[in-house]
Design a protein around this nucleic acid. Sequence first.
RNA 1: GGGCUCGUAGCUCAGUCAGGCAGAGCGGUGGGCUCUUAACCCAUUCGCCAAGGGUUCAAAUCCCUUCGAGCCCGCCA
Length: 501
Amino acid sequence: MDEPRHWADVIADNVAAKKHTIATGITPSGEIHIGNMREVVTADAAYRALCDAGIDAELIYIADTLDPLRKVYPFLSDDYSEHVGKPLSAVPCPCGACANYAEHYLTPFLESLERLDISPTIYRAHELYGRGDFVPATMTALANRDRIATIIEEVSHREIPAGWSPFNVICEECGRITTTTISEFDENAGTVDYACECGHSGTVPAKGNGKLTWRVDWASRWRVLGVTIEPFGKDHATRGGSYDTGTRISREIYDYEPPYPIVYEWIHLKGKGAMSSSTGVTVTIADMLQVMPPEVLRYLIIRAKPEKHIDFDPARIIDLIDEFDRATGRAVELSRTKEYLKSDIPFTHLVTAVQIASDLSGIREVLDRSGYDGHDEASVRRRVLNVENWLTSYAPDSAIFEVQEMLPDAVKNLSDEQRAGLGTLASRIQGGVAAKDLHDLVYAVSEESGISANKMFQAIYTSLLGKKSGPRAGYFMASLDREFLLDRLRAAGGESAVVDE
RNA sequence: GGGCUCGUAGCUCAGUCAGGCAGAGCGGUGGGCUCUUAACCCAUUCGCCAAGGGUUCAAAUCCCUUCGAGCCCGCCA
């Protein structure tokens, strides 16, 4: 059976074989989470598919650093009320260490992008506007103010207020971009006259002193940056939404064909609903990279068609990782990263190994014993970190086991035969019994005691873990402190006066 | 009110655009590895393709209706 053509390749099929610019844009108003990441990963998959098809393509990312701070988000201190309305690039950094508010959220995001092997050309809105790239588009918009207003009213059925302007000025006095009104503009001088609610008024060059409103900004951006393909969330895709208005503004005002749209759905975090920066329901990309390799995180998104919503359950990350390791096909190809390290060791097995061993060399021994002696050192080290982080954050109880410090209560439920077996086992373990011999010993003892190996193993796990199953018994027991093991087996077997303190 | 996406095995989903025997992985079950114990290998179970109607030689797929889920339409992807 042929593999169905991957959605990213279908996009490459659908667009003309000319030079393409794929644009992404995320506003750094809060933590940039894995929901946001869908935008860039989707774009990157399309980018790679285009490159593979021999099409000249470029990937860009625009940070909307001129967007105003909308409100004091729940994760901000009350001090931020005085900054509401200012562009994010002019708001102080929450931690004090970054250049500004936008950079605070941008920095970890860009670092994560690097790990995901996504390397767009990065633009910051305040830099683009600051160096005057948008001045011609701004003047065009101001000159066509009425036509733009009509388009927005017709398409979105919204009423545009009388004083509306497609361009918003940053007040020189109070620094806000949301409180100014434009009265006049001078196309030749490239200046605008404005008045602010704070009482200030004046005339400033459009260059570096403001920004087009969202719907106009987006459309003009296509023209200014030559965007031909762009993924965006379904909120923009709704009828009468910003893509619809953008399409008409782009064609009618800027004489530019709008980009090929890739509409994508949201990522839902199991049990928490859709992710949103403003409500604080977030898992950052960096959080995810703590518990899974970057190529698997890409795979989570690339294997699903953009229009499908993704239910993401962090408790099942190991299944996803194992699936990725086994899977073949286009989605896997498109998910690979530079630092991709092939791993032959199932992640589920590593989860066990990590919990048995106390350090990396111990883990290595466990892996050797289970026949993975040819494993790649760097790959193991990286994945062990993922496992450890996963165990302490998202792992379900069923994946976790712990050697019980005290004799588990469940031992009471063992049969007399099982107890006797444990006692016999203890008496047979002498000195330095090797792991493999220890494992064989379990079978020998169960045979002598007349109980099934099954029951014998259950008895061992019950006495050590308080559960009926666990990692391979012989190797597991061999990794424990010998005195502890003997005391425990005797105690569980009821043959000794040793009592747990 | 307007609109979008989705509904296929216990779970996560392919397959729907272009109609042609209902699929994969995981899980479950059974077996193997002269050691069944979260490794590995092999085998195997599982479906009113949400429901109803229509078109067709033929429908998971196209059309209509209904139900259910999630969401968008106030600059959150």
